[in-house]
Design a protein around this nucleic acid. Structure first.
Length: 1116
RNA sequence: AGUCUCGUAGCUCAGUUGGUUAGAGCACUACACUGAUAAUGUAGGGGUCCCCAGUUCAAAUCUGGGCGGGACUACCA
C-alpha cells in the first residue's frame, strides 16, 4: 500500500501525529533555515501577558499572524518570529496585591519593594505553560525558546536608549496634567483603575449657578454695541462648588446663542441681568412668568418674573470679555485670568451653556486655559483640603465623604451649626448672601470613585514626564498614510482621528513594577541627566563615587528599588542628583519591542532586515495601544513607520453576539475546542467565516460545519484517490507526467481551475485578505474538485484496463491534491502536512519531495494551463446538466432511465461550438443519447427580448418603464431586425428612440411541443419519449444497480468475478437480450442465466415486484 | 457624549460603477443518485435587505435622520 488509507477523518489525531513529527524533526526551525540568504519578511509578535489564561480570541489573532508568516515562508522569504512577554504593568501589580492582601500603601512598609517586585516577577509568568501549550497545539509557529521579556535588563537598556534619543531631541519634558487622584489614598489613579467595575457611582451633589459680573470697560466696540445694558452677570453652572474659589475663566460655545434676561435675584431680590444660553432660558425660567413690558417689583414668592432684554448674542462675540473674580482668596501668579474663552466642549445639554473653568480640576479646563494663557489656582491640597488662602474654609476637606462621622460631629460643633453642612453647601450659602447665586439644587450624576478607598476622586494637577509627540504630529500622520491598514477604515478612522487629536504622551506612572525613568535631577530640577545605556550609568556612578566618596556600583537588577538608591553628580561635582521616582508607561515597553527584542543598539548594531515590520496583527483594541506606541516611537526616533501593514482583528463574541466573560460563563476554552475539533478546523472556521476585522460570533456548530464540509470533502477526495491508486500501484513522476494537451477535456478543465485558484489565492493573501483566500480554496475543493471532477471521473479510475486516460486521471487528481495541500498549509498546517506526506509516498523520479509541506514552495500559476474558454464551456455544461436533471425530476423520470436527446437552441455559433466540446460530459451526466442543436433561424424557437437597463437607462430616462414594457413584447420581426444589427424605433410621448442590439438581450423562450427549462441565456429542451430499447436499457441499468448493491452487501471484493442466476421476468429477459454484455461488464459477471427455479434470495424490482437470484463468486 | 464598525433567510455570510426574479453554505422537507457511503445531486419552503425621509426612470446599494449590537476614547461644567 503506497497511500495511507484510514477509516474516518480524525483531525485531533492528525494534530497529534503531525505535532510529534514537527517536534522530532525540527520542521519550524528548518522552515527558516531553508530560506537562509533570502529576503526576509519581518514580523513582530505583540507581547501578551502570561498573567492571565489564553482564550479563544487569542487563537483568532494568532491564527492571523501565523498564516501570513507561513504564507510568506512558502513564497521564499525568511520569516523570523520571536515570541515575547509583556511583564510589567498595573494588572500584574493588582493581582499581586490582591494575592498578598495588601494595598499600594503597604508597599515599602509591610512588604519591601524588593520582595514586592520579586513577587511580580513570579506572578507574571504564572500561565506561561498554558500559553506555550496553546501556541503549540494550535500550530502557531513562533520562537518560544528565545522570547524577549520586558523585565530583563537588556530589554530595559534598549528602552532607555530610545528614551534618551527622544530626550536628546528635546521631546521629553516634565509638566503637570490633570489626572484622577484619590486624596484618601494619596495617589493618582490610572484610567484603567477608573474603569474598574463599580468605580462610577450615582451620587447626589450640590449644584450651583454662580453669577459672575462682567467688566464693561473690557468690551470692545462690537461688544459695546450689543451688550448695551449695565450690570451683566454671567450664569455658570457647576456640580462641584468647591472648585469655584479656583475659578480663573469662563467658557462659552462659539456657535451657541446667548440671551440676556432681566429678573430679580431669587435670594436677594436685587435686579439682575443674567447672561445664559438662549436655548436654556426656558429651562431656568418658567414661560408663564415671562413679561414683555416692565418687570414687576420683586416679590417674596417663588415666582421669578423675567424679561428677555437681548434675545440673541453669538458666543463668538463674547470672547475676551473680562469679569470680576467671584472671591478674593487669590489670583493666579501667571497668565491672564478672569476672561471669557471659547471652548469646543461647551454644550447646552445641561447647565447654562457657560462653563466655569478651574484649570486645576478638569482636563478640559486645563486645555482651554493653556490655549488662552489663563493662569491657574490650586486652592486645594493633595489631602483634599482647602489651602490657607481660602481663609474661611482653610484646612477643610472639600468633599464631605473624606470626613469620618466623628470628624463631622466635631466640625458641626466648631462651626456652631445644628447639622454638619458640607463645604459645598456653605459655599453656596456664602454666594447667596453676596448676591452671586442664581440657583442651587441637589443634582444626581455619575462620579468616579477610588476603587480602594471607596471615596470620590478629584481631578488634580500632578507632576509627570511627557513626550512631546505633538511636535511630530505631522510626521505621524504622513507616515500613517503609508501604512496598509486592514481594514482601511481603522487606519483613517480610529487611528487617523486619534492622531489628528493628538495629546502629549504622559509617560509617568507612580508605581513600583516597571521600567524606571532613567532621569536624575538635582533638588530644584535645574540640572538633569538622562541615561541611555548601562555603560553610561556605570560611568556616571563612578563619577559620583569620586565626587562624594561613595562606593556605589551598578545594580544587578535595574528595577526599583535598587535603581532608586543610585546617586549621580552634577557636572561640577557639587550637587547630588537623585532619580525621578516615576516608572514609564508600560505601553512604551511594548512599543519599544522592535529594537529591544534584539537589544538594539547594543548586541545588535543594525536594524537591517529587522525593521520596520512588513506585517503585524493584533486586536483592534490595540489601535491606540500597541499600534500607536510602535508608530510613535519609530516616528520620533527613526522617522520611519514601525510596520508596513497591520491587520487589526475584531472581537470574538459568543454565539449570541455577547462579549465573552467569566461572569457570564460563556467563555470558550481553546484547549477543549482544539482537542475536540482539531486545530485546523478551528483555525479554518475562525478565518473563513468572516473577515478577521469583523466581530466573530463564535459558534462550535460552525466548526463542525467546516470540518464536515471542507475537511471532510477534501479527506474523502484523498481517500477516493488512495483506494484506487493503491489498487493500481499508481506513482507520480513529475518529469514524466502526461502533457496536459493529451489529457481529457475534464482534466484540462480542473487543472485550469487550479491555476485560477492559485492566482486568486495569491492575490488575496498578498492583500491580507485571508477570508477571501480561504473561500476560494473551499469552493475549489468542494465544487470543482469533488462535486464535479471526481464525481464525473469516477469510472476512469476503476475501469480495469490500463490506459493513457487512466494515467491522466490519476495524475490530474494527484496534481490537484498535491497543490491543494500546499495552498491550504498556511491556514491548516496540520491536515495539509498529513495530506502532503501521504501523497509524496507515491513520489518517484528525479524530482524530490520535501520533508514537510511547510518546506515547499508555493505553486506558481502556469498561465499556459489556464483556459478561460474551457472554464466558460464547463460552466455552461454544469448549468445545462442542472436544468436537465431538474426537468427529469419534474417529470419523475429517473436518471438511470436513458433518454434519447436534449435539444439546445443556439442563437450564436460560438455557443454551439462551446457546447459540442462538452457534449460527452453532458450526455453521461444526464444520461441522454444525443445533444442536438437548433439554430435561431429555424423558426422552431420562440424568442424573447429582455431590456438591458444599464444601457437603456441613459438613453431613456423617465420613459424607461414604458419602454421596458414595449421591448419585452417585441415581435419576431422586430427581434430579427435587431439580430441583423438594425435598429428598432420606439416612440413614447411623441419622442422617438432607437433601440439597438446592445440594448436588449435576446433569449429563446420556448420550443413548441417540448419540455423546456431556462437559466439566463441558456435554454434546454428534453425529449421524454421512451422507445422500447430505451426502456430496456433503463432496466438493464436498474439490474446493474441491484447486482452492485448485492455485491456490496455480500462484501465482495471490487475485483471478484461472479456467476449470476436470475428468476425469469419479461423486463429482465428483454434487457439481457439487448444489453447482456453491458451488464456483465459492469458487474464483472462471468455468466448471467435465467430460470424458473425457486431462489433463496430476492431483490426488489420496479413497482413492488420481487425477483429471485443467486450470485456466486466464480470458483467458490 | 464623541469616533469607528456592524445590521440581508432560522444560523453564518455573498451581493460589482444603483439596473428590475436579492444569492450561497448550513439547518429543515421531499425526491433521486451512488464502485467516495459520516459522501453526492435535484427540488421546495423560508426575506418589511433594521426603520423613516430624500435623490433617481430605477435604491439592499447613494444622501440625510433615527433605532439596535459592539469596540475604543472621554467622562463631563
Amino acid at each position: 500500500m503506497i497511500y495511507k488509507e484510514v477509516k474516518g477523518l480524525n483531525l485531533p489525531e492528525i494534530d497529534r501525529e503531525i505535532l510529534a513529527f514537527w517536534q522530532e524533526n525540527d520542521i519550524f526551525k528548518k522552515s527558516i533555515e531553508n530560506r537562509e540568504g533570502q529576503e526576509s519578511f519581518v514580523f513582530y509578535e505583540g507581547p501578551p501577558s502570561a498573567n492571565g489564561k489564553p482564550g479563544i480570541h487569542h487563537v483568532m489573532s494568532r491564527a492571523v499572524k501565523d498564516l501570513f508568516c507561513r504564507y510568506q515562508t512558502l513564497k521564499g522569504k525568511k520569516v523570523h518570529r520571536k515570541g515575547g512577554w509583556d511583564t510589567h504593568g498595573l494588572p500584574i501589580e493588582l493581582s499581586v496585591e490582591k494575592e498578598l492582601g495588601i494595598t499600594k500603601e503597604d508597599i515599602g512598609v509591610k512588604i519591601s519593594i524588593d520582595d514586592y517586585n520579586h513577587k511580580c516577577r513570579e506572578t507574571v509568568m504564572r500561565f506561561k505553560n498554558e500559553w506555550d501549550d496553546v501556541t503549540r497545539k494550535m500550530g502557531y509557529w513562533v520562537d518560544l525558546d528565545h522570547p524577549y521579556i520586558t523585565f530583563e535588563n537588556e530589554y530595559i537598556e534598549s528602552v532607555w536608549y530610545l528614551l534618551k534619543e527622544i530626550y536628546k531631541k528635546g521631546y521629553l519634558y516634565k509638566g503637570y496634567t490633570i489626572q484622577p487622584f484619590s486624596p484618601a489614598a494619596g495617589t493618582g489613579l490610572s484610567s484603567h483603575e477608573l474603569n474598574q467595575p463599580g468605580a462610577y457611582r450615582e451620587v447626589k451633589d450640590v449644584s450651583a449657578v454662580a453669577l459672575f459680573k462682567l467688566k464693561p470697560e473690557s468690551f470692545n466696540a462690537a461688544q459695546n454695541a450689543v451688550l448695551n445694558v449695565p450690570g451683566i452677570l454671567v450664569a455658570a453652572w457647576t456640580t462641584t462648588p468647591w472648585t469655584l474659589p479656583s475659578n480663573t475663566a469662563l467658557a462659552v460655545g462659539e456657535a451657541i446663542s446667548y440671551s440676556i434676561v432681566e429678573c430679580h435675584n431669587p435670594y436677594t431680590h436685587e435686579l439682575n441681568r443674567i447672561l445664559l444660553a438662549k436655548d436654556l432660558v426656558y429651562k431656568w425660567f418658567k414661560p408663564e412668568h415671562e413679561v414683555f413690558d416692565h418687570l414687576l417689583p420683586a416679590n417674596e414668592d417663588k415666582k421669578i418674573h423675567f424679561k428677555i432684554l437681548i434675545p440673541e448674542i453669538k458666543g463668538k462675540l463674547l470672547e475676551g470679555i473680562r469679569y470680576e473674580a467671584l472671591f478674593d482668596y487669590a489670583i493666579p501668579e501667571e497668565g491672564d485670568a478672569y476672561k471669557i474663552l471659547l471652548g469646543d466642549f461647551v454644550s447646552t445639554q445641561d447647565g447654562t451653556g457657560i462653563v466655569h473653568i478651574a484649570p486645576s480640576f478638569g482636563a478640559d479646563d486645563m486645555r482651554v486655559a493653556k490655549k488662552y494663557n489663563v493662569g491657574t489656582l490650586t486652592l486645594v491640597d493633595k489631602q483634599g483640603r482647602f489651602t490657607k488662602e481660602v481663609y474661611d474654609f482653610a484646612g477643610e476637606y472639600v468633599k464631605e465623604d473624606y470626613l469620618s462621622p466623628e470628624e463631622k460631629a466635631q466640625e458641626k460643633i466648631r462651626l456652631g451649626l445644628e447639622k454638619y453642612l458640607s463645604v459645598d453647601e456653605r459655599l453656596v450659602i456664602k454666594l447667596k448672601k453676596e448676591g452671586k447665586l442664581f440657583n442651587s439644587q441637589k443634582y444626581q450624576h455619575n462620579y468616579p470613585h477610588c476603587w480602594r478607598t471607596d471615596k470620590p476622586i478629584l481631578y488634580y494637577p500632578l507632576d509627570s514626564w511627557f513626550i512631546r509627540v505633538t511636535a511630530v504630529k505631522d510626521r505621524l500622520i504622513a507616515l500613517n498614510n503609508t501604512i496598509k491598514w486592514k481594514p482601511a477604515a481603522t487606519g483613517t478612522g480610529r487611528f487617523g482621528n486619534w492622531l489628528e487629536n493628538l495629546q502629549d504622551w504622559n509617560l509617568s506612572r507612580s508605581r513600583y513594577w516597571g521600567i524606571p525613568i532613567p532621569i536624575w535631577r538635582n533638588a530644584d530640577g535645574s540640572i538633569e541627566k538622562c541615561i541611555g545605556s548601562l555603560e553610561e550609568l556605570k560611568t556616571e556612578i563612578e563619577l559620583a563615587n569620586k565626587a562624594f566618596g561613595l562606593n556605589q556600583s551598578l545594580p544587578k537588577d535595574i528595577h526599583r528599588p535598587y535603581i532608586d538608591d543610585i546617586i549621580l553628580t552634577s557636572p561640577d561635582g557639587n550637587e547630588k542628583l537623585t532619580r525621578e521616582l516615576d516608572l514609564i508607561d508600560v505601553w512604551f515597553d511594548s512599543g519599544s519591542m522592535p529594537y529591544a527584542q534584539i537589544h538594539y543598539p547594543f548586541s545588535n548594531k543594525s536594524l537591517e532586515g529587522l525593521f520596520p515590520a512588513d506585517f503585524i496583527a493584533e486586536g483592534v483594541d490595540q489601535t491606540r495601544g500597541w499600534f500607536y506606541t510602535l508608530h510613535a516611537i519609530s516616528t520620533m526616533v527613526f522617522d520611519s513607520v514601525a510596520y508596513k501593514a497591520v491587520v487589526s482583528n475584531g472581537l470574538v463574541l459568543d454565539k449570541n453576539g455577547e462579549k465573552m466573560s467569566k461572569r457570564k460563563g460563556n467563555v470558550v476554552d481553546p484547549f477543549l475546542t482544539i482537542n475536540q475539533y482539531g486545530a485546523d478546523a478551528t483555525r479554518w472556521y475562525l478565518i473563513s467565516n468572516a473577515d478577521p476585522w469583523e466581530n466573530l460570533k463564535f459558534d462550535l456548530d460552525g466548526i463542525t460545519e467546516v470540518r464536515n464540509k471542507f475537511f471532510g470533502t477534501l479527506y474523502n477526495t484523498y481517500s477516493f484517490f488512495a483506494i484506487y491508486a493503491n489498487i493500481d500501484q499508481f506513482q507520480y513522476d513529475a518529469s514524466k507526467a502526461l502533457p496536459l494537451s493529451i489529457r481529457s477535456e475534464m482534466d484540462q478543465w480542473i487543472i485550469s481551475r487550479l491555476q485560477s485558484v492559485i492566482i486568486l489565492y495569491r492575490e488575496y493573501m498578498d492583500d491580507f485578505e485571508p477570508t477571501q483566500a480561504a473561500r476560494v480554496i473551499e469552493s475549489f475543493v468542494s465544487n470543482d474538485l469533488s462535486n464535479w471532477f471526481v464525481r464525473l471521473s469516477r469510472r476512469r479510475y476503476w475501469k480495469s484496463e490500463s490506459s493513457g486516460d487512466k494515467q491522466a486521471a490519476f495524475e490530474t487528481l494527484y496534481e490537484c491534491l498535491y497543490n491543494t495541500s500546499i495552498l491550504i498549509s498556511s491556514l491548516a498546517p496540520f491536515f495539509s502536512d498529513w495530506l502532503y506526506k501521504n501523497l509524496i509516498a507515491g513520489f518517484i523520479g528525479s524530482v524530490k519531495a520535501k520533508e514537510s509541506v511547510h518546506l515547499t514552495d508555493l505553486p506558481n500559476a502556469d498561465l499556459s494551463l489556464k483556459q478561460t474558454d474551457l472554464e466558460r464551456r464547463m460552466d455552461i455544461a454544469q448549468r445545462i446538466c442542472s436544468q436537465v436533471l431538474s426537468l427529469r425530476k419534474a417529470q419523475k423520470i429517473r436518471v438511470r432511465q436513458p433518454l434519447q436527446q436534449i435539444l439546445v437552441p443556439v442563437l450564436e455559433d460560438s455557443m454551439k461550438s462551446d457546447l459540442q466540446m462538452v457534449e460527452e460530459i453532458i450526455k453521461s451526466e444526464v444520461n441522454v443519447k444525443e445533444v442536438n442543436y437548433i439554430s435561431g433561424d429555424a423558426g422552431l424557437v420562440k424568442k424573447k427580448t429582455k431590456p438591458n437597463f444599464r444601457t437603456l437607462g441613459k438613453k431613456l430616462g423617465k420613459h424607461m418603464k414604458e419602454a421596458a414594457e414595449l421591448i419585452q413584447n417585441f415581435n419576431e420581426e422586430e427581434i430579427s431586425q435587431l439580430e441583423k444589427d438594425l435598429n428598432v424605433k420606439l416612440e413614447i410621448d411623441n419622442q422617438p428612440y432607437l433601440i439597438s442590439k446592445e440594448d436588449v438581450e435576446i433569449l429563446s423562450e420556448d420550443i413548441p411541443g417540448w419540455l423546456v427549462s431556462h437559466d439566463g441565456e441558456l435554454t434546454v429542451a428534453l425529449d421524454i419519449n421512451l422507445s422500447d430499447e430505451l426502456i430496456s436499457e433503463g432496466n438493464a441499468r436498474e439490474l446493474i444497480n441491484r447486482i452492485q448493491n448485492i455485491r456490496k452487501e455480500k462484501d465482495l471484493n471490487v475485483t471478484d468475478k461472479i456467476e449470476i442466476r436470475l428468476q425469469e421476468h419479461p423486463d429482465i429477459l428483454k434487457s439481457l437480450q439487448l444489453f447482456k454484455d453491458l451488464i456483465s461488464n459492469e458487474v464483472l459477471a462471468f455468466s448471467i442465466e435465467t430460470s424458473n427455479d425457486q431462489f433463496a434470495e430476492q431483490f426488489e424490482w420496479l413497482e413492488d415486484e420481487k425477483i429471485g437470484f443467486r450470485i456466486q463468486v466464480k470458483g467458490s
